[in-house]
């Protein structure tokens, strides 16, 4: 069953809100931030206060704040800020979950002994804490689902959201892709990739490590195909493993690929694309598993504007000039390091 994309809410390295993403697409040049002297993309959460009172946020960590911010912006974008949400499902896809709070919990017992393990940090470190905060703050009492599947998190979770709508379990799904960065993650990336992460991020250079850590939340309000779509539709979600059974790319669709400067995944893109033209937007938001949600947000904006925007960055490999979509389909392709892939087919 097709899913209507009714609203979008994003916070990431390019800024927050659909307008910020749209202007980044218009500008076509990435703006990379910096943490500890290393290039990094960070997501803002300052606007969350407009949606949630400060007291309600006292136990809510950065990961859940990004989540709530993205979710509330998506609802606002849909014009659903004040409606009954008892039939709105919540689905969240995340590659790593809340990293900072996981380490804060470890801090509590490594620093003060096991008897001083913090129950608040523990509760918030559980992967579905962010979804729970969304349900509570929005009184969304329908089913809630959190999925973690590294690079496949977004396509996998989307497949289940689609079934909820098809089976009539919910009228709408508030779907989000969230990941956060932290000091330990940056340390690990440096250990794994050395100085390969100095930027710029060159998604089309498949054989080179050029990833830059990013974070953010990308949310969508999805409904059954009979409902109006402000952006476009998700037609089909397909997951598989290219190493076991080669991916079949839709012939006439334009392609947005999730290549984000990771060498281990690059080889799969190279193999599957076989020289086909594609667009890649990771230089706007950086490299993290849930960034596939941002690829989908770009697809949504592109369908709305009927324009395939220029891929940002210096490399010419997959660089396209902006062009009209002319009712053409758009497919998002994401690979994991083991050849596993997610295909999200979208159209107007």
């Amino acid at each position: 069953m097709r899913m209507a994309i009714q609203g979008v809410g994003v916070t990431g390295g390019f800024g927050c809100g659909v307008d910020a993403l749209t202007s980044a697409l218009h500008r076509g040049e990435p703006i990379v931030g910096e943490v500890d002297g290393v290039p990094a993309y960070q997501a803002a959460i300052e606007g969350l206060g407009d949606f949630v009172p400060k007291r309600a946020l006292r136990r809510i960590d950065h990961f859940s704040k990004m989540t709530l911010f993205g979710a509330f912006m998506a609802l606002k974008d849909t014009g659903l800020s004040d409606v009954d949400r008892s039939r709105m499902g919540v689905v969240i896809a995340t590659g790593y979950g809340t990293l900072q709070t996981t380490f804060k919990f470890l801090d509590s017992y490594l620093d003060f002994g096991y008897a001083c393990s913090s129950p608040t940090h523990f509760s918030n470190s559980v992967h579905n804490a962010a979804a729970a905060h969304v349900s509570m703050q929005m009184q969304a009492t329908a089913p809630s689902l959190t999925v973690t599947q590294f690079e496949m998190s977004v396509s996998s979770a989307l497949l289940s959201a689609q079934q909820w709508l098809a089976e009539g379990r919910v009228d709408q799904v508030l779907f989000g892709a969230v990941d956060e960065s932290c000091e330990v993650l940056r340390y690990c990336r440096k250990e794994f990739f050395g100085d390969g992460e100095q930027g710029p991020l060159r998604p089309a250079n498949f054989s080179e490590q050029s990833a830059i850590a990013g974070e953010g939340a990308a949310f969508f309000v999805l409904a059954a195909e009979t409902q109006p779509a402000a952006y476009g539709y998700i037609d089909e979600v397909i997951l598989g493993n290219h190493a076991t059974c080669p991916v079949k790319l839709p012939i006439s669709d334009e392609l947005i690929v999730g290549a984000d400067g990771h060498q281990a995944c690059g080889q799969w893109y190279q193999e599957a694309l076989k020289g086909r033209e594609f667009a890649a937007y990771a230089p706007f938001y950086g490299s993290f598993p849930a960034a596939a949600g941002f690829d989908l947000a770009v697809a949504a904006v592109s369908l709305r504007d009927q324009t395939l925007y220029t891929s940002p960055g210096a490399d010419a490999g997959g660089r396209l000039l902006p062009r009209k979509l002319d009712q053409q389909g758009l497919t998002c392709l994401k690979f994991g390091g083991g050849g596993e892939y997610g295909l999200i087919r979208c159209s107007s």
Partner: peptide, 13 residues
Amino acid sequence: SLDAVELVIIVQK
């Protein structure tokens, strides 16, 4: 109730 168990840790710490 979650503050209550956190309070136990606070008093201990």
